[in-house]
């Protein structure tokens, strides 16, 4: 703010007049001026769009379309929430991917792990028709197979009776241990040993041996009935 007591310079401070030379007016070359005016590099008032490829034009149109949608005041709130939802979903997706969580099952597809499944369960003892298969094996003289079927049937009976918890990954001796404190443990151990000699030991089984082994299984089944 200027105050009223502004000092005024005295005559001693007045600059000396310079030697006056006549001014010469110079004009730019009209041709050059026109040339510069036509040069796009100096046209600041207009929006000069660079040359665009097909994809650039396509994405620009998509962008313009989205802008036209988002720009409408009546939809402002709606699109804001859509953007929020997309951002949240993207964040969750990235996090799940980082932790390698398999969420493909959500969309009705089999999870990726199923493709690499290493479960090798081939047989369910609850789905086997033992009577028919035993009859067939005995008729064919396939005694090893018959002994196997007798053993599997024994396991099924023990499972049905609640004596053991059937799991394909368990060994025969796991079931023997599960029968601890049961009067069935010893007889079951016997039939287990017989089965293993035949099935894993490669022992040859003729009819006579088969009848003896079958007798052991039948005895076990009798003791099982008594216990049940």
């Amino acid at each position: 703010m200027l105050s009223g007591n502004t000092s005024v310079a005295g005559p001693s401070q007045t600059p000396a007049p310079a030697a006056v030379a006549p001014l010469q007016l110079r004009y730019p070359d009209a041709k050059k001026l026109q040339e510069l005016r036509e040069n796009k590099d100096f046209q600041y008032q207009q929006d000069i769009r660079p040359d665009m490829s097909f994809w650039e034009r396509f994405w620009r149109r998509v962008g313009d379309f989205l802008n036209s949608l988002l720009g409408k005041t009546s939809y402002n709130g709606f699109w804001k929430y859509v953007l929020y939802a997309i951002a949240i979903a993207t964040t969750v997706f990235v996090i799940l991917k980082l932790f390698q969580v398999d969420f493909s099952g959500l969309f009705g597809r089999k999870p990726a792990a199923a493709a690499l499944s290493y479960e090798t369960y081939r047989e369910n003892i609850h789905e086997i028709d033992f009577a028919a298969l035993l009859e067939e094996a005995e008729a064919q003289g396939d005694y090893r197979r018959a002994i196997r079927l007798y053993y599997l049937r024994t396991l099924k009976t023990l499972t049905d009776g609640g004596f053991i918890d059937w799991r394909p990954g368990k060994t025969n001796w796991s079931y023997v241990h599960e029968l601890q404190n049961s009067p069935l443990q010893k007889p079951f151990e016997r039939v287990t040993q017989l089965f293993e000699y035949v099935w894993y030991g490669g022992s040859a089984v003729d009819e006579q041996k088969f009848l003896a082994v079958r007798n052991s299984f039948q005895q076990f089944n009798q003791s099982l009935v008594k216990t049940a």
Binding site: E119, T120, Y121, L152, G169, T171, N172
Partner: peptide
């Protein structure tokens, strides 16, 4: 792995 593999019998 052991639990998921069927014991051959």
């Amino acid at each position: 792995i052991i639990q998921k593999t069927e014991v051959p019998r």
